[in-house]
Design a protein around this nucleic acid. Structure first.
Lengths: 200, 200, 200, 200
DNA sequence: TATGAATGAGTCTTCATTCAT
DNA sequence: CATGAATGAAGACTCATTCAT
């Protein structure tokens, strides 16, 4: 671990992004927090550890984020962008393909680490929960839209179509979340095909 | 002594103060831990709080559970019983009904609190994760069995049937876990019907 | 100051008051706090310093007093006893003598250090302020009682007598408080005589 | 940057942003400190809070006052003017009136806030203590002078007159200081009358 | 077994002060 | 002069764990 005080401070390149007001300092703190929260969880990550990994003094973390929770909130606010349905992305007539594409690219712009954080801290912190709920809603909306477009007169009507959309969203989120823990894997394409069969 | 909050000690049944092996001491500790872990999370629950709610002295918790983590492990070991598939529970011919019954009674004997704990602490503690994986596997097995029994010659064969089982398990676990957070609700019966349609 | 960790812990005499549950531990903490609060003020005294002077580990302070302010409150509650007027202490006919006696022994059982604390922390902490107000009231009551007893028909009546009592109380408290700071000294006996003259 | 609470910067008068030596910057810092020290105490007031209330950047406080204590010292030095006895203010023959006037206007030019600061921080900081002592001395001097002028041949001689002056000063300072805390009120006019009676 | 005082490493947070720009 | 990011020593308080009784 090294004795105290001999932490080799990464030399800041003068004139580069390593000087005062360095635009990357705050980002480095968030980078570190993202990595650590994802690996160890929010509660189990000391702010001092964040500072160490970000290579900034302990106090600076609190300069940017007055309380520890603010780091988490900033992370969720700034690094998980739930993409609002950009319509017209689906091609009429190919429901299974549209669902597959949705599975392959969830409407969330976030690193794998941020996704872990989103799922893990959801039930302890309101703002994280809200973001996750938003994501879930967006996935459902897109799945529903894809199915409506491809299967206009699906048997069972709107109700069954809604169930199909919700089911697909559940599978996708379950895969992102618990499958990584339980070791079970799901092939979203197969699920997409199954669902389309049910509606066709 | 007065400086600490007085704790209204629940009067011990006459017959001896804290009789030898008083039945229930250990159980009361687990009761308290279950409630607190579910509400606040494992990390955020101090052992002292467990002792207080259980109405036992702090030191006694460590008599029964040398380390804090042992409380969680005991909880998972003793209070989440994944029921191994008792075969023959399904009635041939009614796949949707069998899935509905599975949804209504997951093959896990555990309080709602224990279920929360199982999901929330899964990625921090191996033994919890293993139990959750076990549960997932069992649900899949039962769903598969129900479908096999009811739809012997399902179109698409064993592969599609497996996908259906896995999908149904995902929906059930997703409902237990994230639905409570995101506020979205799923009707398992409708999903069961959807899936059966896909295979019929 | 000595390197860390070599603090010569005063050896606890086994069998004496130095064993577990030692009745003096809490008292030693209060002793230390009393000395330090009086010398440096409440805000300027770290809890760690209290622990050091009391020769107990830092954490133990918080075992007895969950928050730092509780130490101050306990000190005021337990170590400043305002003595309720024990009547019949005054001898009719000797007002000046009674006031002198009051000056010589204020109706408060507290060390000089506690008195300093009482005055210094009064305006920051409600419970201290209340105690000081109580003391002030008691002094006034006694002074009034002494004057009533000795000068039944004082000219000016009850109103002037009240003014005299309040004035005397002011002098006594001022002497306890600011005189120590400003370096001015007051002879309470002379003030007593002055007041009696005014009423005679 | 957004993570810190936005501070509504009072718009600087057009004519240059923060003009050179903008009159008032230093004064605004002292204004803010005066308000905060009086309300919360010196120790409990962070310099950052002073800067915020003064609406100046944190670093600027240290430009004008290299150390925090210098703010307090400047406040006491510049905002508490103990008025040296301007003689001849008293009218011979009316001692009680002179004392009353003294009570109504203490020989100190300072806001109520500064008076609080003077009393509260007296025993922690030498320069404050000195100023308070000076004030006390001046009050005594004036009271003595008023009494001498009005009661040339007071019974009891110079000694008793001195006691009277000191008593009156004690009452005035006690009223300024502790009476505000204990809730007891004193009517200085009545005390003045009492004292004059004692000497008449 | 039972008890709660004892222990001290660790955690979040605050804050005076510096200093490059 | 002006600015606010940077610094790190302290501070209050927490808490798992031990242990004498």
């Amino acid at each position: 671990m090294g004795s105290l005080r001999d932490r080799a401070r990464r030399p800041r390149r003068p004139g580069g992004p390593g000087r005062r007001g360095e635009p990357g300092t705050r980002a480095r703190i968030l980078d570190a927090a993202e990595e650590l929260f994802a690996r160890d969880g929010y509660e189990a990550t000391p702010t001092a550890e964040i500072a160490r990994l970000a290579d900034v003094p302990k106090g600076l973390v609190f300069h940017y984020f007055p309380r520890k929770i603010d780091v988490l909130v900033a992370l969720v606010d700034e690094r998980t962008l739930v993409e609002e349905s950009p319509e017209g992305e689906s091609v009429p007539g190919d429901a299974a393909g549209a669902l597959s594409r949705l599975a392959r690219r969830l409407p969330i712009r976030a690193s794998p680490a941020m996704r872990r954080i989103l799922f893990r801290e959801a039930d302890t912190h309101g703002s994280v929960r809200a973001r996750l709920g938003h994501l879930n809603g967006e996935i459902i909306r897109r799945a529903r839209f894809a199915l409506e477009l491809a299967l206009p007169g699906a048997r069972g009507g709107a109700a069954r179509l809604e169930v199909a959309a919700v089911t697909f969203a559940a599978v996708l989120l379950h895969q992102e979340n618990l499958c990584q823990l339980t070791g079970h894997h799901i092939d979203p394409d197969a699920v997409a095909e199954l669902i389309v069969h049910a509606l066709a």
